Amino acid sequence: MKRSDRPEAPNALPDGVVSLADHEHRARLVLGDAVWAYVNGGAADEITLRANTQAWQGIELLPRVLRPLAGGHTRVNLLGRELAHPLLVAPMAYQQLAHPHGERATALAAAALGAGLVLSTQASALLEDVARCFLPDAGRGPLWFQLYLQHDRGFTRELVQRAEAAGFEALVLTVDAPVNGVRDRERRADFRLPAGVSAVNLAGLREPGRATPTAGHSAVFDHLMAHAPTWDDIAWLRSITHLPVLLKGVTHPLDARQALTCGAAGLIVSNHGGRTLDTVPATAALLPRVVQAVAGDAPVLVDGGIRRGTDVLKAMALGASAVLVGRPVLHSLANAGAAGVAHVLRLLRDELEIAMALTGCRTLADAPGTLWPNANGS
């Protein structure tokens, strides 16, 4: 990879950056073309990628005035814990592409801002090192480990045991990406991981053997899908850990109900940031249907396209228990390391509080009353 495709190591916030959009524009100048294509690209024609942000923008808020709001707050309860606010950092691979300090910088910033952190299986830093950066902060949010089930169950078991020993408090099983999406932008840019950046927590995992070909001779169905997880694997995963298991990538109401039947402790409505299957509806449109299907039996979180505090308020109004923020964290990490990530999280919380005040919303329990009556998440 060309030197221009690797960022320098800025640690000071650039002048004039006052929004998540500013962070994105600035990061485009910092990151090389190939890394930018990987970070910001989506699947195929990127219809879902664009729709995620546009859908939140299309939901309208209806202010209420002259309400007594003194003593209001953004606190929420999630899996038995009270959090200062409903913001978590979404799992994202290879964060050293954005900054040499990578996931460790993100962990320090998230902990300092009271946000939750979901660490990717494909992190470019050891999970133990990230946990040590995050756990000591008394005001931190939850620390979760995102898991891709590996073809080697013994390796998966050891990975889960490492996460437990390091202090992670839940597992987040990604279920919507048994194969990579068709990422045209990434392929056009000829993205490849640079030397020194890898999924270090998967070191030592051997390649899977090829299944016996069927009449179709399909690389997808004969090889990749032969090792893909199924509902039966949820029970196995729960049997090897004492940690709660959340499923990330649930978009269909029937899958939501089946997930609860299988013992999932929570769901994350996600279309993988538009990176897997294109033309999937935006998460803002999917969220209300999953919330209705779950009927309060488990927390429902959402990611995809969150760019403003108003988006967070709308998600909570549609029934989310919390939200996860992805690409803006990588943008800000590229711009200013840990200071940049802290800035993005602070912006979102400040904007959320302002939106609550301007809609007459004292706590997030009042959020459903902030939506224009015909709001449906689409």
Score class of each variant (00 low, 15 high):
251 T>S: 15
251 T>F: 00
252 H>Y: 10
252 H>I: 01
253 P>K: 09
253 P>H: 04
254 L>I: 04
254 L>S: 15
255 D>K: 08
255 D>V: 11
256 A>S: 09
257 R>G: 02
258 Q>R: 15
259 A>F: 12
259 A>R: 09
262 C>E: 15
262 C>D: 14
262 C>P: 00
262 C>H: 14
262 C>L: 14
263 G>N: 05
266 G>Q: 13
268 I>L: 14
269 V>Q: 02
272 H>T: 12
274 G>W: 10
275 R>G: 04
278 D>A: 12
279 T>D: 13
279 T>E: 14
280 V>N: 13
281 P>H: 11
281 P>W: 10
282 A>T: 01
283 T>D: 04
283 T>L: 06
284 A>T: 02
285 A>F: 00
286 L>P: 00
286 L>Q: 12
287 L>M: 03
288 P>V: 05
288 P>H: 03
289 R>Q: 14
289 R>A: 14
289 R>M: 01
291 V>H: 03
291 V>P: 01
292 Q>P: 00
292 Q>S: 12
293 A>E: 04
295 A>Q: 12
296 G>T: 11
296 G>W: 13
297 D>F: 00
299 P>Y: 06
300 V>I: 09
300 V>G: 04
301 L>Q: 04
302 V>F: 04
302 V>Y: 06
304 G>D: 11
304 G>E: 07
305 G>Q: 08
305 G>I: 10
306 I>T: 06
306 I>G: 01
307 R>A: 09
308 R>M: 02
308 R>K: 14
310 T>R: 01
310 T>S: 15
312 V>K: 07
317 A>G: 02
317 A>F: 05
318 L>C: 03
320 A>F: 07
322 A>K: 09
323 V>G: 01
325 V>N: 07
326 G>N: 08
327 R>N: 12
329 V>S: 06
329 V>T: 13
330 L>T: 14
331 H>D: 15
334 A>H: 09
334 A>G: 14
334 A>M: 10
335 N>H: 00
338 A>K: 02
338 A>L: 05
338 A>G: 06
